[in-house]
Computed example of a mutant assay.
Amino acid sequence: MDVSKLLEDVKDIESFLVFARALAADRTASVVQEKENSSSPYGPDANGWKNTTIESFLESAIAWAEASDFGITQGLSLSNPWKQFAVFLYCGKIYE
């Protein structure tokens, strides 16, 4: 499962839900991997998860949205709000 590839394909409610399910599965897989073999406390968890609590996930997603005008400064189109929200969720995973 390549979550970043699915992110690129988000264009409507169906593709958004495919992405959201994959992101949830990616987090579940990360938790399982971390239980089996913990990552360094100085880097991201398995599968690149930098924000592992709901608080840090939401804080990072909001920070990205504020810093990028919800992706507008990064080239995201207002005509595709599904992709904007998908990127918002993805940035909860990776943005610091």
Rank of each mutant, 00 (worst) to 15 (best):
F85R: 06
K83D: 06
K50E: 12
W82C: 10
N47E: 02
V31G: 10
E66Y: 04
S39N: 05
S56F: 01
Y95H: 13
W82S: 09
S15I: 05
V18K: 11
Q84G: 15
Q84M: 14
A61G: 01
N37E: 05
E8Q: 14
L58D: 01
E55Q: 07
A24R: 10
A22C: 03
K83G: 05
R27P: 00
R27C: 03
I94H: 13
T52I: 00
N47Q: 03
G92S: 07
E59M: 11
G75H: 05
E8H: 13
K50A: 15
A63T: 02
L78P: 07
Y90H: 13
N47I: 00
F88G: 10
S60Y: 01
Y95Q: 13
S77E: 04
Q84V: 13
T53P: 02
S40R: 05
I13V: 15
L76N: 05
E66V: 13
S39K: 10
G75Q: 10
I94L: 12
L7Y: 04
S79Y: 11
E96A: 13
I72L: 14
W82V: 07
D2E: 12
Y95D: 08
K11T: 14
A29N: 11
L89T: 08
L17G: 04
G48R: 00
F19K: 09
A86W: 10
D2P: 06
I94F: 08
F57A: 04
D45L: 10
S38K: 14
A29H: 12
E8P: 01
Q74E: 12
F57C: 04
E66K: 12
D69I: 09
N37P: 03
S79E: 15
A86F: 07
S39R: 06
I54M: 09
E36D: 08
T28G: 12
F85E: 07
S56Y: 03
L17W: 10
T53F: 00
V31K: 11
V10I: 02
A22L: 02
R21C: 07
S60T: 01
A22I: 01
F19I: 02
W49E: 00
Q33R: 12
S40I: 02
A86Q: 11
A24M: 11
P81Y: 07
E14A: 14
F16A: 03
F16H: 10
D9T: 13
